[in-house]
Design a binder for these strands. Sequence first.
RNA 1: GGCCCGUUAGUGCAGCGGUUAUCACGCCUCCCUUUCACGGAGGAAACACGGGUUCGAGUCCCGUACGGGCUACCA
Length: 518
Amino acid sequence: MDREVRVRFAPSPTGALHIGGVRTALYNYLLAKKLGGKMLLRIEDTDQNRFVPGAEEYIIESLKWVGIGIDEGIEQGGPHAPYRQSERKDIYREHALRLLNEGKAYYAFDTPEELEAMRERLKAAKVDNPQYNSITRLQMKNSLTLPEAEVNERINAGEPYVIRLKVPRKEEVRLNDLIRGWVMVHSSTIDDKVLMKSDGMPTYHLANVVDDHLMEITHVIRGEEWLPSAPLHVLLYRFLGWEDTMPQFAHLPLLLKPDGNGKLSKREADTLGFPIFPLNWNGIDHKTGEQVFSQGYREAGYLPEALINFLAFLGWNPGTQQELFTMNELVEAFTIEKVGKAGVKFDINKAKWYNQQYIRIKTDEELATNYLLPILKEKNIDCSPEKAAKISSIMKERITFPSELWSEVTYLFDRPESYDETVVQAKWTSEAVRVIADFKQALQGLSSILKADTAKDTLHTVLEKQGVKIGKVMQALRLAITGVGAGPDLMQIMEILGKEETTTRLGNALDKLQDRAK
RNA sequence: GGCCCGUUAGUGCAGCGGUUAUCACGCCUCCCUUUCACGGAGGAAACACGGGUUCGAGUCCCGUACGGGCUACCA
């Protein structure tokens, strides 16, 4: 029974794609590629109340950005189209009816109020887990308790109804999870789940099982929140006669809050100051109805390869000591058995570290054209590609986000207006002033272009002549040129600034700070 | 409450019956250096607890505690 490996990522378009969803998609993708299989994207839009316009496009764009390729889905089509569940209603209905005819499901007419009353009644009677099941269904309004004639009458009259699964009273349901091993659940703890809602849409459970079977899915990799209902799904496969081709299940540990307890939420991410969505998202809050904006990882300056590497290591580890993996290397190294079982606390620091690593392996030109130049253009600052590459070169080992290519060295584009007071007080000495004055003169006497090497030689000549050690003046010199006390190599900065600009700045500093020397 | 899943340093992990318990992030110290970073060398820091099984347990079993998930005509 050698089937082609087929996995799916099946999000609901109820809003932006959560970062945990990206990880789930990633693990699916890695497994598919590792095993030479296919990755499908299926949109599970069966809840009409929670449907959010734009969410589907957002999901697609997010996956593209991080580099998770889809083989079959709404964009690329495929042999099992449509890949949007709302367009497959007839298929689900057909299967629900089949279960009905075979006595494995039944119609139920109970109103929400009646269901609520039933739960209240059971709670009052100290029942641990109030549910619609093999016992309680006998007291409810359904095709098991009502005469057939009445059932038909109600349906023909257009009365709302749902179709429920007739879960057996006493049965052990087992499933062998790829990550957790055997999980056993007694059918008495599973209730008679609704399969078809009164609006004609299937619930997740039915649609999921039907589609996974029809789409020939071999591995279901999803979040741990689905583990409790997995036995129900096993039951559905059995009732539909599909048990021999039932996919293998793997339930991923959840992403938890960095501190405290609970699963990672948007609210928590907001207060801790890191993104929860891959891309910027403009949406409306379901509860308040207000317009809300969330910054995405992309816009916050995270590189997709860094995000992927970080996410891959949240709950998975290759067992070696390699930390940096390209997508292809991840594919190569991935095994589902190496996925951990415990919930994972989300630590944004590690993501930042990965970002640094990936920035550093980019070429100066890449950094310049993809990040620095666009920023400068937006700020209306003129800069040659060569100069931008040079700046990238001296900055890339010092930054976490590409935006810092500019923000950390704004003095390369604007002359300092003021000087860091603490540095002035500590380092602006009369000795330094003498050296800077001489250095300025020497620089002016230089012919043509200023290179870092010549700047250094020139400085040393002055230093030697005056008998001053370099350590005594460097900070002051840096202050004069940049206005601040720290930054990349000063000689490189002078080269970038050029002779004219450097000497002008030295003159300015000498002027402005002339009374401050100690 | 009930059901299910889990528990190695602050965080992410390695370990798959016998190790001085691995590596990385973060933190601290020192070195390098014109500063800050980078880099290098060190350091502090963990098997939740209690019972078993075994010559031997972080590794297997049971219990407790703690954490998480589910408990909808949401996914």
